[in-house]
Design a protein around this nucleic acid. Structure first.
Lengths: 156, 156
DNA sequence: TTAAATCCGGACATTCACATCCAATTTATG
DNA sequence: CATAAATTGGATGTGAATGTCCGGATTTAA
């Protein structure tokens, strides 16, 4: 449904949003998000090329958000990694249909659209602010489950 | 987003619904839906194993729906081919979270759920009944664009 | 019984998502 | 300048999704 890469990308940007506007190294992001490090670097590279993230090489460098968490929606991230694939033209290739879809494809696109709207209506800041108060278990309520919320250790 | 196989499966069942309860050969379905014949047979096989379709071998045989178009939803077909992948447990593997998702995964699952509901709320019969009246172009209004609506030629 | 129609199932090919590894490049700092 | 920290990009591997091919099994009908 949603690809593994989308899952990884969202974990990464949520974590980055939680420390925004600070930069984090790929290793730090990997540790926090539990994403395989070698693959994470590819995902982050893609997000940078799409203008979601920016990077700084060298000592003290790392990855950070281009926009603020208030300005960045879940949809922005999803579309940067793998566009949702709205159905805009007839998949059967009937050019005569133009922008008008048959009843089947209209409903398929409608379903994709409601998902798109759900993603568009939520910013990273809103995810972070969600207290999720009704849940009593350990570590629940963190924007990204299992992530040590805004770990503030600066060694050296 | 939605896989190619889902697209093919929906085309096939919509066509079968349009002639329900009659059976159609794989070749006839392939011609009507523009799906590669060799692959279509695999897709149909899967739908049969999932209890969506039934088949009859030999001369005069073919494929037909198990249920009526009124009783079959788009979601039934989608789930038979490739389950939507609702998020029921923490993808980070934190068992302690149990059934409670963190804010990020709660929103991701919510988005999948709205799509699931959109598919669940539509039967094949409703797709077929959709007149799509506002559209003036050729062949528009057919439940599956490009399909000769309930082609009634019986040769021999 | 034979033949034709039709589905069934396995083997194979291709492409892509996912993932790993490592050398090259950039940058801050002593 | 030399070194260590960090990203970048290329090469490569693996498995799943997509797609093709064909012989075998089943059923109807002549």
């Amino acid at each position: 449904m949603l690809s593994q890469t989308v899952e990884y990308a969202l974990r990464a940007v949520i974590f980055l949003a939680s420390v925004s506007p600070d930069a984090q190294t790929t290793s730090e992001i990997g540790r926090a998000t539990q994403v395989p490090l070698a693959y994470l670097s590819k995902v982050l590279q893609g997000l940078r090329q799409e203008g979601i993230l920016k990077s700084q090489r060298g000592v003290g460098g790392g990855i950070s958000l281009v926009r603020t968490p208030q300005e960045l929606t879940i949809l922005d991230v999803v579309n940067a990694v793998e566009p949702l694939g709205r159905i805009t033209t007839c998949p059967l290739g009937l050019a005569a249909h133009g922008e008008h879809l048959c009843p089947l494809h209209r409903r398929m696109d409608d379903a994709i659209q409601v998902m798109e709207e759900a993603f568009h209506s939520t910013t990273l800041a809103e995810v972070l602010a969600d207290p999720n108060p009704s849940i009593p278990l350990t570590n629940i309520g963190a924007p990204l489950c299992g992530v040590p919320a805004t770990s503030q250790k600066k060694k050296k």
